[in-house]
Amino acid sequence: MTPLSHYLIFSALLFSIGLGGAIMRRNVLVVLMCLELMLTAANVSLVAFSRAQGLEGVPVYDAQVLALFVMAIAAAEVAVGLALIVAMFRARRGVESTSLTSLKD
């Protein structure tokens, strides 16, 4: 069996890979995927805590309900984000984040 700390460290690694990708990549679609990675990493630690707190073999379900809410909000976020990306493609003919410099220029 795995200790709780290993779940948390796994979640931390997954989160930081997502964070690094969101900083490094210029393709907005990939940045959106990295955001999904970060949300999933948060879900992993929620599930690990729900199991660590459990009594008599039954996990604490508050954390799992929160993870379910995170999933639902992620679905809404992806819907809005993809619509924004399509709008951006219409306006700029590309999905590179480097093309979004009209405020700077």
Binding site: I9, A12, I23
Partner: peptide, 18 residues
């Protein structure tokens, strides 16, 4: 920059977890 920030984040959360 991305690797440094991600590495710092991973180190911070892991040490907090421990």
């Amino acid at each position: 920059v991305g690797v440094v920030i991600a590495g710092m984040m991973a180190g911070t959360i892991s040490s907090a977890a421990l």
